[in-house]
Amino acid sequence: MKIKLTLDEKYREMVEDIRSVNNPNCSYYMDSYTEKIEALTRSWFDSGEIYEYQVKVIERIHSADEIEWIEHKYNWRLKSDKFRKRYIGIDILGGVLFFKQPEAADNMTESELKKLLEDTGLPFEAFEKVEADD
């Protein structure tokens, strides 16, 4: 049976760490990634924080044949404080706009922002990601 997982990008470091060894030590990963493993345990099983299910989460990640990543969306803003309108967005015709308030900006993945910046002369490195709730 082929195991395919679809996970949020925020789990990438943990998943790569778990998959990098032949036989994962479950207690090490539960200590190192407590919050993330508990979040996955709650989303995959109706068990809350039961140890056996947390071990199953680690084993499932380790034995997965394929992992598909879902990129997280962020608000993006210019790193410099010299700009009054710092948050980036998209107008109705697909052009680049800047807003003073983060709630007016568009939520975008990193790849969406890079695509938007193509042919604008604006470097990706000039922007920083901000959680959409901030």
Rank of each mutant, 00 (worst) to 15 (best):
M1G: 06
M1I: 01
K2M: 06
K2L: 06
I3N: 04
I3P: 00
T6L: 13
L7G: 00
K10T: 05
K10V: 06
R12Y: 09
E13R: 11
V15W: 10
P24L: 01
P24R: 03
C26F: 04
S27M: 05
S27K: 08
Y28A: 01
Y28H: 07
Y29G: 00
M30V: 00
D31L: 12
S32H: 02
S32K: 14
T34E: 15
T34Y: 15
E35S: 07
E38H: 12
W44Q: 01
G48D: 10
G48M: 08
E49I: 03
I50A: 10
Y51F: 13
Y51S: 00
Q54I: 03
V57F: 04
I58Y: 06
A64S: 15
D65Q: 13
E66K: 14
I67E: 12
E68Y: 14
W69M: 08
E71R: 03
K73A: 02
N75I: 14
K79L: 09
S80Q: 08
K82S: 11
R84C: 00
I92H: 11
I92A: 11
L93M: 11
V96P: 08
F99T: 01
F99Q: 04
F99P: 02
Q101M: 09
A105S: 15
M108N: 04
T109M: 14
E110M: 12
K114Y: 03
K115M: 06
L117V: 00
L122W: 13
E125R: 10
F127W: 11
F127N: 03
E128I: 08
E131L: 12
A132M: 04
D134M: 02
